[in-house]
Design a protein around this nucleic acid. Structure first.
Lengths: 232, 232
DNA sequence: GTTAAATTTACCCTTTCGGGTAATGCCCGA
DNA sequence: TCGGGCATTACCCGAAAGGGTAAATTTAAC
């Protein structure tokens, strides 16, 4: 895939492969997309297996992927595609708007998620920016995906200036302990890791629990992840 | 904000407010964007505080937000904006590509994240689709955001057909227990919740630990979240 | 140089956890 | 009809967790 700085929408010829089981949709897509400048649909597949074979050979810039395929579905296919052709960008094109499918798609390696009511011109734009690796999520499901990002109430860089940590926040040592706690370490293990006594580790954990307003270390770990207190 | 079905890029007049402390960038942006059809920059602000006041009154469709502002920064401003004007979409426009800032921005309520090397035409397209609520993330940082989505190895809908759960997966009851476990409930509490004895709850937790190949409930909770085994 | 906060250690105690083993009843598929 | 998987209950036991309180030490700030 060629690269071109400072352009978010690909301006070179984008190689596209369509994976879609309904022939009518498939040929319609191909026709519509080939009308667009700089988009070149080089192949179609009516099953995930066939699509993967094609992609192995063609290494297209973008794959238009349907979710509801027979046998192997679009998610498994997406995972497979990112294995055999990591630089190929997968654009999900589906009529499903269920949260699980949106999240699972993006988790499987797709870079864009479109609903089928998209108009061809917009789809072509999405394909062009997906070719550059941009992430694009349909308006009707964007909220579902975005709410997965933790609200950074405690992010230290929120206010970068002279902000003396408005109390209630974890000390460096406590953050260190929290990190280990999230890994599932016991107090004993934490103590060994930090080369302190178990008493110390316990003391830190206790103050962490208090500061996070939780009752036990499980809740602390969950809260830490959800609020992004520890780097994943 | 008016709505128009089947169009991903807004085709109506999009009201835009720019929040950016550098005057040069600000006026440059305004000039460039006002060249674009259907985009109308109605106001500029050079600080977050000023921007919020303007947005309270104007309720624009889109806010172009710089991250590095004096005093209150762009993240805090974004949170505030989504409070006072929930339908206003925030587009982050920054030169920072640090992972924390990307994630924190999206977690704060922004719907799009652009780097400043974007060309004006592309930016206008992003603004137009952001106005409809779409999520757009710059190619250079999209990977950072996308890797946050859990890979759905265990998602039951991966193969929807006659797939008899290839063993090693949690039973319904165990998933129920796992859900409570993630909430930080003790075995006793889980037992009460499910109206069973503590022994039963313990048995379920034990088999969960074994099936997830972890040593304790903290690791189980973390794994459950990271792999999307429990609905957030 | 005094104060404040963070880090460290220690003791007490009760509750919970996790492992192991095993028995019972239930339902479904072979 | 006979398993096999699942849910349920039960027991024992050692280890760990969590709460409370207290104090010594370092570090940082003022």
């Amino acid at each position: 895939m060629s690269a071109q700085a400072n352009s978010y929408f690909a301006t070179y010829e984008v190689k596209v492969v369509i994976v879609e089981d309904y022939k009518l949709t498939r040929v319609g897509l191909r026709y519509a997309l080939n009308q667009i400048e700089n988009i070149n649909v080089v192949a179609e597949a009516e099953s995930a297996e066939e699509g993967i074979e094609i992609i192995k050979k063609e290494h297209p810039d973008v794959v238009l992927m349907d979710l509801g395929l027979p046998n192997m579905n679009g998610l498994e296919a997406t995972i497979k595609i990112k294995e055999v052709s990591p630089d190929t960008q997968v654009v999900i094109l589906t009529s499903h708007d269920r949260e699980e499918e949106v999240l699972a798609s993006l988790g499987s390696g797709a870079t864009a998620y479109c609903l089928k009511d998209i108009d061809p011109k917009a789809l072509s734009d999405v394909i062009k920016c997906a070719a550059k690796g941009a992430c694009w999520i349909d308006p009707t499901v964007a909220k579902l995906a975005l709410k997965l990002f933790p609200k950074p109430e405690n992010a230290e860089f929120l206010s970068k200036g002279a902000n003396p940590d408005p109390k209630g926040h974890l000390t460096e040592r406590e953050q260190e302990v929290l990190r280990l706690l999230v890994q599932g370490r016991s107090n004993t293990e934490i103590a060994k890791e930090l080369i302190v006594s178990v008493h110390t580790a316990k003391a830190h954990v206790c103050s962490i629990l208090q500061k996070l307003c939780v009752d036990d270390r499980v809740q602390a770990a969950v809260k830490a992840i959800k609020e992004g207190l520890v780097k994943a």
